[in-house]
Computed example of a mutant assay.
Amino acid sequence: MTTLVVGATGATGRLLVEQLLQRGEQVKAIVRTPGTFNEFITGHEGFSEIQAGVYDLTDEEMQQHVTGCDAVASCLGHQMSFKGVFGKPRLLVTDTVRRLCEAIQTTHAENPVKFVLMNTAGNSNHDLNEPISFAQQCVIGLLRLLVPPLSDNEKAADYLRTQIGQNHQAIEWAALRPDSLQNENEVTEYTLHSSPTRSAIFNPGQTSRINVAHFMAELVTNEKTWNQWKGQMPVIYNKEK
């Protein structure tokens, strides 16, 4: 199985690439700056690196890179700098998700391609009744106006939810929603939920990046896990000790 990873040089993307390679998968990564991975990744026979800015790819190049892939995983996000948060492109994630899905549809793959999106627990799944407090609605609304990446994440998930939907012939999808990302060295126990079990604003949980990468790799490689969560937006928390 071959997986194309975008956002592969980010803090979670690197871990996802490593998780997939450890499972014996073939991985293609689109990276703007080459030589940023560790020796395990760069020396692995199943790894190939595509030097490009994902936002700069032509439609034809995008189609070329998704051809032959069984899955596409996006850990793409905005850099945590003034330019990354407030500069262009404002819809980096949404536009990339849309273009990747459009490219997938041109390949006429024999089986539906899995699309796994890393999203955020601050985003609601509007296919479900996920009530949030009035206070949290106000804060989210303010953040949506002031912090463009939140709106981008919301629109990216909504594209999969509304434009790809539940019965698309070429694409199946899942959008993983972690809360308060942390750095850890090893995979630990974690829990999965159809909807948030706590407030992402007033009572956030914690999710380690390596656990996010582990579950994204599970979605790609484990059919039972995929069939359980496809078309959904699971929320992931580290298991509380």
Rank of each mutant, 00 (worst) to 15 (best):
P178D: 13
N203I: 01
L192E: 00
D179W: 04
Q166R: 14
A135T: 13
L100M: 07
D95L: 06
P196G: 03
T191E: 14
T162H: 08
N167I: 11
R198N: 12
N123E: 11
Q169N: 14
S199D: 09
L146P: 05
C75F: 09
L146D: 02
N123V: 14
K114D: 06
W173T: 13
L91F: 14
F115S: 04
L142A: 14
D152A: 10
N123T: 15
S199K: 07
C138Y: 07
N153P: 01
A200G: 09
L160Q: 05
S133A: 10
N185T: 08
G77W: 01
R99N: 14
T120R: 01
C75D: 12
N123P: 00
N125K: 11
S195Q: 07
V113N: 03
K114V: 09
W173I: 13
A135L: 15
V139E: 00
T191M: 04
Q137T: 05
I164M: 12
T96I: 06
M118K: 00
E130I: 03
L91T: 09
Q182H: 06
L146E: 01
C75R: 07
Q105L: 01
R198C: 08
I164A: 11
P149M: 07
G87C: 10
I201F: 12
R198A: 10
A174P: 00
A109W: 02
N153E: 04
G87M: 10
T106Y: 00
Y190D: 01
N153C: 07
V97D: 05
H126I: 10
V72P: 12
R198L: 03
